[in-house]
């Protein structure tokens, strides 16, 4: 096929460039997957040894710096309570904000300002959210370190995610549905309550769970809000608590192997919780997703 009248091949340079870029793109993907595999592998292989009943049912109370044993029960309880409280605060605010943006704001000045600052809020570093709650709740109002203070900081981090995902889901609800409801004489707020929210429900649940998964792994804001303890404290409103990420951070920063072992197991427990939340969220999304093309 090299005759002048036939179909000419493309030049070697062009072919090489095309293949070269293809190789680079595949390489980039491989490079991105390597750390994921490495992290997961190390967390599992190092963490599984101490993932025993003692770890899940005992605290670190009375466990000396060099001792083996001990557990993260106090931290697990703390994390669950803090995350639950954070959701209780942030979900209503986030959901109502999304409703405002989609149903009431109508592109006015306030809604544009809110929309812009929701985006900006997504970028607030978690450590700054922690410092803010410390400055406001503990220094200014004189409250004590507590799980609740940590929940406040986590709630700030959850809000923008909840708003964005809820907003996206509400916008997916076809306008025909709203109009059909209005045409029946149903008022706007009842339409939102009875038609719009149920239609968007699973999507919103997915978004909330992804937000929860994200903040469940946050360490920095807990440092300056729930502070730290080695004992079990079931009351999130009274006195310092522990959190699982905080537990990992604390144990990882210690020089002896027994502590680092506990850190790995804590990391494994944390990843299991976060991945489980992620997986459930995505399963809900996938299961109820309308076929959206592309």
């Amino acid at each position: 096929m090299t005759t002048t009248t036939g179909i000419q091949h493309i030049s070697a340079g062009r072919r090489f460039k095309d293949l070269f870029v293809k190789a680079l793109v595949y390489l980039a993907f491989a490079l991105a997957v390597v750390p994921l595999v490495s992290v997961l592998w190390l967390v599992i292989s190092n963490g599984v040894a101490r993932l025993d009943l003692e770890f899940l049912t005992h605290s670190m109370r009375g466990i000396g710096a060099r001792d083996a044993g001990g557990g993260a029960y106090h931290a697990i309880i703390g994390t669950l309570e803090q995350v639950l409280l954070a959701s209780v605060i942030s979900v209503p605010i986030g959901l109502f904000t999304a409703i405002y943006l989609v149903e009431y704001g109508q592109g006015g000045r306030l809604s544009r300002a809110i929309s812009f600052f929701v985006d900006v809020m997504t970028g607030v570093p978690s450590v700054v959210a922690g410092l803010f709650i410390f400055a406001f709740w503990i220094l200014f109002l004189g409250a004590q370190f507590s799980g609740w203070a940590g929940a406040l900081a986590l709630a700030i981090l959850m809000m923008p995610t909840v708003v964005r995902s809820a907003e996206e889901m509400l916008r997916l609800v076809p306008n025909d549905l709203r109009e059909a409801s209005y045409a029946l004489g149903v008022s706007k707020w009842r339409t939102i309550l009875k038609v719009v929210l149920p239609t968007a429900f699973t999507g919103i649940v997915t978004g909330v769970m992804l937000a929860v998964a994200r903040v469940a792994g946050e360490t920095a804001p807990l440092l300056m809000t729930v502070f730290f303890t080695n004992s079990i404290n079931n009351d999130p409103f009274n006195g310092p608590q522990m959190g699982l990420p905080l537990f990992v951070f604390d144990q990882a920063a210690r020089p002896n192997d027994t502590a680092v072992d506990r850190a790995w197991t804590g990391a494994l427990t944390l990843i299991l919780i976060v991945m489980l939340l992620n997986l459930v969220a995505r399963l809900i999304a996938w299961w109820r997703a309308p076929a959206r093309g592309r």
């Binding site: 991105a32 998964a213 792994g217 920095a220 990420p245 990391a267 990843i271 976060v274």
Partner: peptide
């Protein structure tokens, strides 16, 4: 990759 907590 984004779901792995920072502390991990």
């Amino acid at each position: 990759l984004a779901a792995v907590p920072s502390v991990v």
